[in-house]
Design a protein around this nucleic acid. Structure first.
Length: 228
DNA sequence: AAGCGGCTCAACCGCCTCACG
DNA sequence: GCGTGAGGCGGTTGAGCCGCT
C-alpha cells in the first residue's frame, strides 16, 4: 500500500509549466511571499513540489528578472567572478541584478567554458600571507575538511587582529564585501609581492590577462594594507 | 527534404545547511 | 544534542531549435 507521501509524489506534475500554472503560482507567491514553498504549492492547488514552484518563480516568473540576453559587460563580470570563486553560481548571480544562478550557469557552460577552457589552475590549499606589523600574521586560504572550497570570506582567519575596529579591519571588511574591488586589490598586492616578503598569493592570477588589464584598469589600484 | 550534431535553457536531482521543535 | 523538514545550491538531463551536409 502506498504511503501518503508516495501518493503525493505520484500525482505531482513534472516537465514544462503551463501558462495557467504560472499565473496561479504568481498569484500565490504575491499573496504569500517568497517563502514556505511547500505551503504555496499546496495552497495554490498546483500539482508541483515546493521545490519546483520555488525554482519556477526564481528562475522564470520573478518580475525583477531580465529577459534580454547576457551582454558583454555582464559576461565580463561573470568571467571575473568565476575566476575568483569558481562555480559559485548563486554568489556570482548576486552581482548581476536580474540574472539567476541557473542562467549564469547555463551561459557559462554554453558560451564561456569553451571560450576560456582552463580557469582553475592553482590550488586554494595552503595559501598563506604574511602581513605587516600589527596586522594578521597569517591569512589562510584553504579547503574545508571535505576538500570543498570554503567561501572567500571564510578563508580569512581574523583571530590575530588585535584592534577590532582598526582602519585595517574596516578596509579588509570593505575589500571582502566587494568582489570587483577585491580582484583589483588582490592583483595589485600580488604584483607587489615580486619585491616583498609581504606576499599575497593569488592563484587565479595565472589566467590570461584581459586587454584592459594593461591599461587604465589597473592604474587606480590601491594596496589593501596601505593605510593612511 | 531528411538526418545529424551541436547548442540553449528550462527543469530536475541529490546533497548540504540551517532553523526549529 | 538530536531529528526532521524546508530551502539553497551546484550538477546534470533532456526537449526543442537551428544550422550544416
Amino acid at each position: 500500500m502506498a504511503t501518503h507521501s508516495a501518493l503525493q509524489t505520484e500525482i505531482q506534475r513534472r516537465g514544462p509549466w503551463l501558462e495557467q500554472e504560472d499565473r496561479q503560482l504568481t498569484m500565490f507567491v504575491t499573496r504569500m511571499g517568497e517563502r514556505k514553498w511547500d505551503s504555496i504549492a499546496k495552497a495554490s492547488g498546483l500539482e508541483r513540489s515546493g521545490k519546483s514552484c520555488r525554482f519556477r518563480w526564481l528562475n522564470y516568473l520573478r518580475p525583477s528578472l531580465k529577459r534580454d540576453r547576457i551582454n558583454s559587460e555582464e559576461e565580463e563580470i561573470i568571467l571575473k567572478l568565476h575566476k575568483k570563486w569558481g562555480n559559485k553560481w548563486s554568489r556570482i548571480a548576486r552581482w548581476l541584478p536580474g540574472r539567476t544562478d541557473n542562467e549564469i550557469k547555463n551561459y557559462w557552460r554554453s558560451h564561456l567554458r569553451k571560450k576560456f577552457p582552463i580557469q582553475l589552475e592553482g590550488s586554494w590549499k595552503n595559501l598563506h600571507c604574511k602581513v605587516k606589523h600589527g596586522k594578521p600574521e597569517k591569512l589562510s586560504l584553504r579547503h574545508d575538511q571535505n576538500e570543498r572550497d570554503v567561501p572567500l570570506y571564510n578563508h580569512f582567519e581574523l583571530s590575530n587582529l588585535e584592534i577590532t575596529s582598526s582602519p585595517y579591519e574596516t578596509r579588509l571588511s570593505n575589500w571582502i564585501s566587494n568582489p570587483l574591488m577585491n580582484e583589483k586589490q588582490e592583483v595589485n598586492h600580488h604584483e607587489e609581492c615580486n619585491n616583498s616578503e609581504f606576499c599575497f598569493y593569488y592563484p587565479n592570477m595565472n589566467y590570461a590577462r584581459r586587454d584592459d588589464q594593461s591599461d587604465h584598469f589597473w592604474d587606480s589600484l590601491t594596496p589593501l594594507w596601505d593605510i593612511e
